[in-house]
């Protein structure tokens, strides 16, 4: 959950990248890390296997600037997408303020996308969250691949609520900041509403 510190004049929010294995969650964070100026970011931590699959989480703290005299921090996390890491995935959702669902656009990953989406809804529920009420955007990643499904089809399958959805090619950065920016905006608007 967001943390408002009146003494340090800081506010921190937690954003989680969710999605099936190999859909590009870690690549999103790596791109953000690469592009953001050193004074706005902390160290990126990746708890990964020898083969660079996320084992527990990736973590990237950002301090982008100030709003109304408060320093705004975003803590970005990715979950491990592989099915058998479900217990860890659930833990990362603790205290989440906003979710980015990264879908893999490849036709052969459609089942994996759907399964991960259901898993997200179920795991959020266990923390008492409802995806429908949470700041939430979707990213259709791997748009560069020839076997990518059309955005319309992806929307039909994964986005019945028509939340904001962005096309992306994470390794080149296409769509990466657009996605983050949108969810960050939703998170801050939510804070405003709650206050």
């Amino acid at each position: 959950m967001s943390f408002i510190n009146y003494s340090a004049r800081e506010i921190s929010c937690k954003i989680v990248y969710y999605g099936p294995g190999l859909c590009g969650k870690t690549t999103n964070l790596q791109h953000i890390y690469k592009k953001i100026s050193p004074d706005s970011k902390g160290k990126m931590i990746s708890l990964a296997t020898e083969t660079e699959r996320t084992l527990f989480f990736d973590f990237l703290p950002l301090a982008l600037g100030e709003i109304k005299g408060f320093k705004v921090r975003f803590h970005l996390y990715t979950v491990p997408g592989q099915i058998f890491y479900d217990a860890s995935r659930k833990l990362i959702l603790r205290g989440v303020d906003g979710v980015i669902f990264v879908a893999d656009s490849q036709v052969e990953r459609m089942d994996a996308n759907l399964e991960s989406m259901e898993n997200l809804i179920k795991n959020l529920k266990e923390h008492g969250f409802d995806l429908e009420e949470l700041p939430y955007v979707i990213q259709y990643n791997k748009r560069d691949l020839p076997n990518a499904v059309s955005p319309e089809e992806l929307n039909d399958a994964l986005n019945p609520r028509k939340v904001p959805a962005y096309d992306a090619v994470a390794p080149t950065g296409e769509g990466v900041f657009e996605t983050l920016k949108h969810v960050a905006k939703l998170v801050i608007m939510e804070l405003k509403q709650k206050s």
């Binding site: 931590i45 708890l47 703290p61």
Partner: peptide, 29 residues
């Protein structure tokens, strides 16, 4: 949830933000 609330002592060369996130992960696990 992994956010640092306060730190005291020889924090100079310690990355407390990362440590906070890992501590919360550790406790969660």
């Amino acid at each position: 949830d992994g956010q640092l609330i306060s730190s005291m002592g020889e924090t100079g060369d310690i990355d407390t933000t990362s440590l906070a996130s890992l501590t919360a992960g550790n406790i969660a696990a």
